[in-house]
Nucleic acid binder design. Structure first.
Lengths: 148, 148
DNA sequence: CTCTTATGGTCAAGCAGCTTGACCAATTCG
DNA sequence: CGAATTGGTCAAGCTGCTTGACCATAAGAG
């Protein structure tokens, strides 16, 4: 593959990601969840299964734990998450999503589905499935880096 | 497509984009171009063909023209771009890339190619081509939004 | 069991990149 | 011509992140 093709691929990927982020964010906002930024969505992704500590979150988001702590404070103040004592470590605090947090996560799912829907018209159902498979294969498991 | 599948697709796309951005940035840095942030790459993309005005750039990056102006000032100070009088409008200034700017753009191409190369092992040459085609189809032509 | 070291978390101050607001110069249109 | 628009910069302010310092608990060495 030529360099220029790789650049075109990269540019398209980045443009699609930017557009998608914006659409999901707008969709979440439209569903009545205010005061959120896209970075909060990445936090939810880490918190969703069983909660997480601030340090876990920091590693996942690729920021300092101070930054993660501020983010959690903000989400807690707005009622999306709760800090509970950690069952196994008295130093740590387990950050878990509230019911409102889960509702917001569901809204994000809906918004994502809505944003992706028009792609089926361009690529076909089959094409979208292939795209999803390919992206899952190349996507890293490591920390999400929301900052460009 | 189920909502959860759309979310998985979105998450993979965003993770891949974040990873790719980071790798390209690191590759450009490794090739000796310092003091740059990923956002500058998006500026180059707009400047590359024939240069652009600050206002054009602002629209392309989705920021205010003041922010774009600062960015240009920074790139100019570091020798990547030059401000020339606009040939058709005495108010405007045409921002064009210097030779060093072009060298940096080539470095970005190489870094992109390097970052994408391992994907061929996962998807096959054919698979990468399909991925590129699909992304080009869904990528918006509009402004790139580097801020999450 | 203590002493040292590592780990989870917060407080405080500073910085970088962006925004809003005001303003000037050149252009366009009535 | 005069009014309104457009390209660009200057200045001040905000927000999210960083570095640095610090405390409480935990884990490991002796």
């Amino acid at each position: 593959m030529e360099n220029s093709e790789a650049l075109a691929l990269s540019a398209a990927l980045l443009a699609a990601a930017g557009d998608l982020t914006q659409r999901i964010h707008a969709g979440v906002l439209a569903r009545g969840f205010e005061g959120l930024r896209p970075a909060h969505g990445f936090a939810f992704a880490r918190l969703a299964p069983d909660g997480a500590t601030v340090t876990d979150l920091a590693a996942h988001l690729g920021v300092t734990k101070q930054a993660a702590s501020q983010l959690v404070e903000e989400l807690a103040r707005k009622g999306y998450v709760e800090r509970r004592p950690h069952p196994e470590d008295a130093r740590a605090r387990l950050v878990v999503m509230t019911e409102r947090g889960w509702a917001c996560a569901r809204a994000a799912e809906e918004a994502a589905a809505e944003a992706v829907r028009p792609w089926a018209a361009l690529l076909g159902e089959q094409g979208v499935r292939h795209l999803r498979t390919a992206l899952l294969a190349v996507a890293p498991g490591g920390p999400v880096r929301p900052t460009w």
